[in-house]
Design a protein around this nucleic acid. Structure first.
Lengths: 240, 240
DNA sequence: CCTAAATGTAATTATTTGTATCAAAAAAGC
DNA sequence: GCTTTTTTGATACAAATAATTACATTTAGG
């Protein structure tokens, strides 16, 4: 998201939609409007967005329902617009997965501040979405060739990686020095959430360590954080 | 963090402080109160916190100033409590780095929902907590490689550290020549508060000494302060 | 369609960590 | 100076957690 962030404004009142999108555009953002849940889905399918501003009260599918639906599927920040003073709505909205809310009527400047705040947080949490596809990464003296599925040590020895190895390693390399739970890792590598007795990640880590670590019994590159998960303990340099 | 999140409540009104901390504790969180910016600093230095609830209007250092100060230094979520309706405060607060705000007077349930929402966002990707992550520290002739979880003596002998070893040592290295009570150490390492018969820290110190001290029977690096706690008796140099 | 590799699952083993216990050291009281 | 009390250190053990192995299932390639 190098350039201007792209905001999707969902509200059934034409006047609000238009004034908000115009205001956002005047303030260095790209904005797109949708009049209901269905139009929102269409726009979402056809473009990249960084944040959604979502009205709670809408004809057709309700804002809360939309919010719940989205927050389980994608990780896309949501700011809810709630009718004035309805505390219940606000609380429910937050519990359901909104990142923030704003009571109507609102000051556009305040909406802007909240959008900036949420985006700032979102970009902190997500270091970089860069895929390593087609690139080369150096870490801990090793070189990963993501295309050809192998890593090479300083002496030129190559080790072949399986697709699962590569996916796991890529996920780790994209987030160096970050503790990732087994749940997160499973989500990021396979797109599913872990059952209670799921040792899949343990296993993949074990296999990957055998290929990556100089001494797999005393891992120094992929470290274990007890009760936490695993962590790539090395600086990563991505080469093109 | 693994267990109950620890919230620091900063407000000059005793009644608000106490009712909020009690309410949070009844809802499965740990809460600590501070009456002003200075007391907050003291508590921050001696414990681990996951989130700060901060009143804007305070005698002494102002809430906005505190917020700015903290958000540049640490990455610790902040929820601001603002006087009713003062929109300017809210906007400035968000721009300055607060993660959320709540207008006074507020519904405790709403505060709880906001705290949960902010924590959920913050914990999405936990960058390795400690400031030593990715660095190397020299102390008492030893070198700690925080990434790879080992310490090395001048002869190149390496000793592997467990997660708990590393956490404890890191906490100590970050506060050299400072007496830390068992309570503080437990909070900083494990994020929980000690029961009356808790010898966990004694034990961990004992284990750590065996790895760190030249003569574990006569500890010289990690010293015992009777009725006080433990103290790292060495200068620390952090290398990048 | 068969074979071989890769991946997920279950089971076993090893490690780490918290708790209980007892011994040793330091302080306090007599 | 001696006993008593308190605090700390070490050990042993049990529970929790992680690593590894073995095995079954799936997938990909020929």
């Amino acid at each position: 998201m190098g350039d201007a962030p792209h905001i999707l404004v969902v509200d059934d009142h034409r006047q609000i939609r238009e004034s908000v999108t115009r205001f956002l555009e005047r303030n260095g953002m790209r904005a797109t409007a949708a009049k209901d849940a269905h139009e929102m889905d269409v726009k979402l399918a056809g473009g990249h967005f960084d944040l959604i501003v979502l009205d709670v009260m809408m004809p057709g599918e309700d804002g809360l329902s939309v919010c719940q639906r989205l927050s389980t599927k994608r990780r896309l920040p949501i700011i809810m617009l709630t009718a004035l003073g309805l505390e219940t709505d606000r609380i429910v909205g937050l519990e359901i997965g909104a990142d923030d809310y704003l009571p109507k009527p609102f000051n556009p400047r305040e909406l802007l501040a909240r959008i900036r705040a949420v985006l700032r947080r979102a970009s902190l949490a997500e270091p970089e979405a860069c895929s390593l596809a087609g690139k080369t990464a150096r870490f801990a003296g090793l070189t990963l060739n993501a295309d050809a599925h192998f890593i090479e040590d300083p002496y030129g020895n190559r080790v072949q990686l399986t697709t699962a190895d590569l996916r796991l390693l890529t996920v780790l390399l994209e987030r160096p020095h970050t503790i990732l739970s087994r749940d997160q890792l499973l989500d990021l590598t396979a797109g599913r959430s872990a059952g209670p007795l799921d040792r899949t990640i343990d296993n993949q880590i074990s296999r990957l360590r055998r290929k990556v670590e100089p001494d797999p019994l005393r891992p120094s590159i992929i470290t274990t954080v007890r009760n936490g998960g695993y962590c790539l303990a090395a600086d990563v340099e991505v080469i093109d």
